[in-house]
Design a protein around this nucleic acid. Sequence first.
RNA 1: GGUGGAGUGGCCGAGUGGCUAGGCAGCGGCCUGCAAAGCCGUCUACACGGGUUCGAAUCCCGUCUCCACCUCCA
Length: 511
Amino acid sequence: RPATPRAPGPVPGVAPGGAGSAPCARRYPCAVTLHLFDTASRTTRELVPLRPGQVSMYVCGATVQSSPHIGHMRTAVAFDVLVRWLRRSGLAVTLIRNVTDVDDKILAKAAEAGVPWWAWAQRHEREFAAAHDALGVLPPTYEPRATGHVTEMVELMERLVERGHAYVSGPGDVWFDVRSFPGYGALTNQRPEDVGASPDEAGAADGTGAGGKRDPRDFALWKGVKPADPQDASWPTPFGRGRPGWHLECSAMARRYLGAEFDIHGGGIDLRFPHHENEQAQSRAAGDGFARTWVHSAWVTQGGAKMSKSLGNSLLVGTLLEQVRPVVLRYALASVHYRSMLEWSPETVHDAEATWDRLAGFVRRAHERVGTPDDDEVATADLPAAFAAALDDDLNVSAALAVVHEHLRAGNTALADGDRADARTALVAVRAMLDVLGLDPARWETGEGGSRASAALDALVRAELDVRARARAEKDWTTADAVRDRLAAAGVVVEDAPTGARWALAPEQED
RNA sequence: GGUGGAGUGGCCGAGUGGCUAGGCAGCGGCCUGCAAAGCCGUCUACACGGGUUCGAAUCCCGUCUCCACCUCCA
């Protein structure tokens, strides 16, 4: 986890005590409030919402040019935990997560596949949606598509041109003038002269200057349609026909749904430059305050290196879900601090699975003994102060999970001692904490699915277990163990509990 | 070259001056007909070299190694 220097004071421009003006809806002592690491200032500081009690948040979503992989899900889960924690803290969160549904790669891949670009985009957008659902990522408040916001983009470009921060070099080619904006580089702490040339097409890179970029660092706001491009991938504008540049979309959509200034802008760490730097430059040059806090999540790595497509498709969400339960995937992603690189290996999955089974096992046993608290009780239960403090400290999930395990152990001890009151207290606390992380077992462990096949399986296994129970009653251990071995061979593990034997499918074997 | 990070016990992973997280995997014990689950105990640490301090994984200086961004990328 990267270093987290503390800002000496409150957020610049906010009067001291401003945070206190918001009504405190927390269920635990209000002394602690969320501190987040802000990429722009490179400090951890208190989140003071622009509007008391509300948080506006924009997270860069997918460019739907290929299938989702585990890295995409890491970012999604990281921000999902942030949203859940903000809401649990009593704040009303508006989350915008965009879909970039037109860009050069989508056009190129669709052409290669011989399908319309919009069909290609739609197909992958659905895959992302399914992956998000599978991992329990809450849907955003609004999920705008780039192609539906050309009007807002044109407006933004017009403002930039009027203010002298953008220029048109040819039909449909509109550029941001980096030299016109002294603040360029502020987000990523680069001096403007150190910034490399932007490689946008039709720029100075072709050596002729025909594209008309005034400065190699200038980046495309709008890309004029080329003869070879599909005509339906372009839109008319006062500057000519073309399609949006990547950076422009997010600025336009953030403003459309969140206003000129908003609380949090998030995304994967790789988007910091150039994407977010350019977004900020555009929006601020146009006169908008834009994001007050920048939050970036780290990578999933393999072999110590950044995951890449050359590693094959073994880390595609679709492939992984054939091998591991979705909740285990979520646990693996959510249990590491969002700014730490997450090394992905078979052990990662194994550890997550073992730990998850421990958590879910306690909840299941506790439910058998003390009943099932309703969801409302869980959602409003007091959270242990140490857990809340951990999450308030820049979402220190590892420390928060340590608190979960403390309560889990207390709960297991209470169950073993037959102390139902203590067991129930621990159960509610554990579920409430896990719920904040999107990991409440009661919401994930819904039996074996309730299908006819699983009902039939359950009946058959129970018949076997009845045989075994009779044998055990007669101390016929040979018969009893034979039943258990037979079930084990079929992939069913048996566990004797005070309330009788229970069964479960054996975990997936490691290869 | 510019920018930003990382090196903690077998593995993963917290921890910004003292109270020595947590998980996984070992080992020992309790429980169990035997298991499983659970509980208790326990072994492996802070990249290296200096320094500051009564005391450093934690602060300072230096060294080494690794990674990311600067090109589309979550």
